[in-house]
Design a protein around this nucleic acid. Structure first.
Lengths: 141, 141
DNA sequence: AATTATGTGAGATTCAATATCAATAAGGAA
DNA sequence: TTCCTTATTGATATTGAATCTCACATAATT
């Protein structure tokens, strides 16, 4: 699905929320750049572009986007939440270089299957998972 | 390996560090109870037992234990680091109930193998990983 | 255009974790 | 044992991400 085909206004309003310039700005900003960005980063980018928005609104808007599955929250272990648009990619997880911070996305259907098996074994109904591999990338080792 | 067989003094001193009561206390406390505890929790437990130790020292000592592989740091997504002794268990990961917070440990050699394959494919040398499944446990769904 | 409830902004607040730095004590040397 | 050097500790301040507060602004309906 292409980003442009997602109508934030429709989604927002279907939730009974109001469509605002700030919400659209955050959504645009998240789509306009590399993934794995954090809230502070989004905030400063928008300010730099002359868009008037507050820190609180950035955080609140991201939360709305996450709740509506437009954005996925990532915890890459560096103490702040990161976010990625997930509209154009199949489910993937992350390899992270502990030296240079490089993030590589990987996909593996086999693991997904095993996860379901494990959940079933313990009587859990799965809603999401975190699967991250940390180590040194080719360049850093 | 039984906990009692681990000689913290020897390990600490082999690192060129000094063996102190505070470091021993934190190590004992981590072993004496359920796993998945956080630093604040350890701090209060020790204080309650009449052991004089500061918050800073608890944090610092845990860091030492982690660096020496006596303790594993967990990020279960609730905004604080948790720790577990790993001396008596094979490697395992976690299933977490998003409703009641229950934590279940699971082991799966197949996933471990696949992780190695993925790392090799992308030229990474793996040092550790995070693999957590979130959902509702039997009781909560 | 008027109404009203939701959304926003600026700043205060929270909370985990880290930094600072003077005082303390571990451990080697004599 | 006593002395010394230096790592460690404790009390407190500070950081940084994220959330909360509440007066004001504004979207959307009438």
């Amino acid at each position: 699905m292409k980003p442009s085909t997602i109508d934030l206004k429709a989604i927002i309003r279907a939730e009974g929320l109001r469509y605002t310039n700030q919400r659209e700005s955050v959504w645009q900003e998240l789509q306009s750049s590399d993934d794995h960005r954090d809230a502070e980063d989004i905030y400063f980018s928008l300010r730099q572009k002359g868009i008037n928005i507050s820190r609180a609104t950035v955080y609140r808007t991201i939360e709305v986007l996450v709740k509506n599955n437009l954005v996925r929250k990532l915890d890459l272990g560096d103490g702040k939440n990161r976010y990625e648009c997930k509209w154009d990619a199949a489910h993937h997880d992350h390899l992270i270089c502990t030296e240079c911070g490089k993030i590589v996305e990987f996909m593996n259907d086999q693991v997904e299957g095993i996860q379901s098996d494990i959940a079933r074994e313990y009587g859990f109904s799965l809603s999401y998972h975190i699967h991250q591999l940390f180590g040194l990338c080719e360049d850093c080792r």
